[in-house]
Design a protein around this nucleic acid. Structure first.
Lengths: 158, 158
DNA sequence: ATCATTAATGAATATCTATTCATCATGGGA
DNA sequence: TCCCATGATGAATAGATATTCATTAATGAT
């Protein structure tokens, strides 16, 4: 099946861009994207994606991607990584990040630690990182994911 | 009256020290402390305390206090604060933190940002912080709370 | 003191989420 | 090719959580 992947990506996409507070609500949003599933499937997906439900002033509780938080030292690693980042380009479905000399391994390991669903794996040299995206993931998806992991990149990319 | 506070503190205490994955489970744990309430009350308490439910490898989902995470720059502020901390002592139900000169305001503001239920408010001079605990909060509770906010203090206190 | 207002709570219930059970499709072995 | 194991899914249901409604206790105003 290739549709499951599409659905999981859509879920991550929706949750990272808006406040969703129930599976029913998310179900509707998916439907608007032409993805029709049941609540049972969604429940499994959210567990698979390790989506958290956090307190929100406005909506009571909302879903949140697991990425950023809960990783000790992430913030410091983040600014370090942002500093070393030079550029990203794509070829043959692969992403290539160029970094300052020596920065590649630490940036790659940061990505690996977060382990976002959109990225199957990374391979780091000294100043180059190869990003292997999940099937059906677009360049835009990868860039969004990187920005979720390292917000400071927002300015440096695009 | 007065018991609600005790219950809220107990909840925070339990959740910060062990993995709890349902209100029923938490209800039992409270009962063991002599606190008998219903699930409805607990649901309200958890919302009030802004307790999150996060993905956990072992137990599926568990409750988590809102403190540490979700506050931008918290980690960096944390190590800075730990560095400036000198000591804490108590008198007349109040806590007095001594800091290196100039550190008091930033440490106090860190506490204020987290806004833990155990602490009603803080008052910072240059090298001294006054901690005003919530009614019925023990010295031990305050210390635990501070350690939750600034884990590095674990070694410096006690 | 009397009355109105508000907060805390439980019981019952509604809403939301996870799981069970059954089905179907797929991809290896033998 | 023929099973058998595995994974994805929906329908139904079990389980968990939030809310509604009613009650009581506390607080304040007149």
């Amino acid at each position: 099946m290739g549709n499951r992947t599409e659905r999981l990506l859509a879920i991550r996409n929706i949750i990272s861009s808006q406040k969703v507070s129930s599976q029913e609500e998310l179900l509707d949003l998916l439907e608007k994207k032409g993805l029709n599933y049941t609540q049972a499937t969604l429940s499994r997906d959210l567990k698979f994606l390790k989506v958290n439900k956090i307190s929100d002033m406005e909506k009571g509780y909302i879903y949140e991607l697991p990425d950023q938080h809960h990783i000790p030292g992430h913030e410091l690693a983040e600014s370090y990584a942002a500093q070393g980042f030079v550029s990203i380009q794509f070829a043959n479905k692969l992403g290539i990040i160029k970094t300052l000399p020596g920065y590649a391994p630490s940036i790659a390991s940061l990505i690996d630690k977060v382990n976002p669903f959109e990225i199957v794996g990374t391979l780091a040299g000294d100043d180059t990182i190869l990003i292997v995206p999940h099937d059906n993931v677009t360049e835009k998806d990868i860039i969004n994911t990187l920005i979720i992991i390292i917000p400071e990149l927002k300015d440096k990319i695009k």
